[in-house]
């Protein structure tokens, strides 16, 4: 349904995202993981046509037969919020503080041609659908009168208003308490038509997604079915992330990845991870290609070239 092929993002001479290719089928939930600065959010913004000025996208992304990259804003406006919509991390800054919540949900429908009265009715329905208590009262509230979790539900209601084909969530639960996060994740799993879920939290992605893409230095370094990737990671970066996510008993050392994510443009040539990798050799000065996906189950032979199998870009993969 969504097919992304060779997506790149640049700011002038600086290459920020390179050769990102993946697909999402109807009803599928795909996680996009990596640390801050790895290019996850830029990938999502490129799909939404929301890249900041001076930052441009190349490659192709097609959703239900329509192009998302390289088309004029006039065409994108029609798709954004209708065919594909997004929930952002910080619900306080994403909502208009001067507008009642119900009006903000209705607005996204009137912008796409729904009559005002009908949009108002549906706004209350949607607020109920994201399980906000007393939707009529919430619709009359301003964002500051709601808690963080409630605001994020409003964002979700806005994103779902026009029944999009694809929902993109960028760290939607990072600012929330764990008990609220759990409810929000369950809700997203229930209502999302097809999902691209961006997070740095591996446990969150494991609780929600079926397939996962691991990004580092603007590239997809590993991708595949979630269980397969998390149980048998091949790329050394994925291995490091998984090890660092496990909290061993007290008194034992936590596994870490040495150093930190370089600033954009400071990643080494060749394999982007080689300056933090214990297994790096001279070979790694040449950039490794993403391997052809290994099919892990016999029934996973779809038309997608990099769809269902486990692929990685590493010269010295684990095992």
């Amino acid at each position: 349904m969504l097919t992304v092929d060779g997506l790149g993002v640049r700011a002038g001479d600086l290459e920020l995202v390179r050769e990102v290719s993946f697909g999402i089928g109807p009803g599928e939930r795909v996680g996009l993981i990596g640390e801050s600065g790895s290019g996850k959010s830029l990938t999502a913004l490129a799909l939404m046509g929301l890249l900041p000025d001076g930052v441009t996208a190349s490659g192709t992304a097609r959703l239900g037969g329509r192009d998302l990259v390289g088309v004029p804003e006039r065409r994108l406006k029609d798709l954004r919020g209708r065919t594909v919509s997004m929930v952002f991390q910080e619900p306080m800054t994403a909502l208009n503080p001067l507008m009642r919540v119900g009006a903000q949900v209705a607005e996204v429908m009137t912008l796409h041609g729904v009559a005002a009265g009908r949009a108002r009715e549906r706004a209350a329905e949607l607020l109920g659908r994201v399980r906000l208590p007393d939707p009529e009262r919430i619709a009359r509230s301003y964002p500051h009168q709601l808690s963080g979790g409630q605001r994020q539900r409003v964002m979700l209601a806005i994103a779902l208003a026009n029944e999009p084909d694809l929902l993109i969530c960028d760290e939607p639960t990072t600012a929330l308490d764990v008990t609220v996060q759990k409810q929000m994740l369950e809700l997203i799993a229930e209502v999302a038509p097809a999902l691209l879920f961006i997070t740095h939290d591996l446990a969150v992605v494991a609780s929600l997604c079926e397939r996962v893409l691991v990004m580092y230095g603007g590239r997809v370094v590993e991708s595949g079915p979630l269980r397969e990737v998390f149980k048998h990671p091949r790329h050394r970066y994925t291995e490091g992330l998984l090890a660092a996510s496990r909290l061993p008993p007290r008194g034992t050392r936590l596994a870490t990845i040495p150093g930190s994510v370089p600033a954009a443009g400071r990643f080494p040539g060749g394999c982007v991870f080689r300056d933090r990798c214990a297994h790096a050799t001279e070979t790694c000065e040449t950039a490794p290609e993403l391997t052809a996906p290994e099919l892990t189950a016999p029934d996973l032979t779809g038309p997608e070239p990099r769809g269902d199998g486990h692929a990685f870009a590493c010269w010295h993969p684990r095992r």
Partner: peptide, 28 residues
């Protein structure tokens, strides 16, 4: 980030041991 989280937690544990610190650690 998770990879850096480990570095800081290890550092806090080491410092608490070396310096005999009492640690009050607030977290969600």
């Amino acid at each position: 980030d998770v990879s850096v989280r480990g570095q800081i937690l290890n550092l806090l544990a080491d410092l608490a041991d070396e310096l005999g610190l009492t640690l009050v650690f607030v977290s969600h």
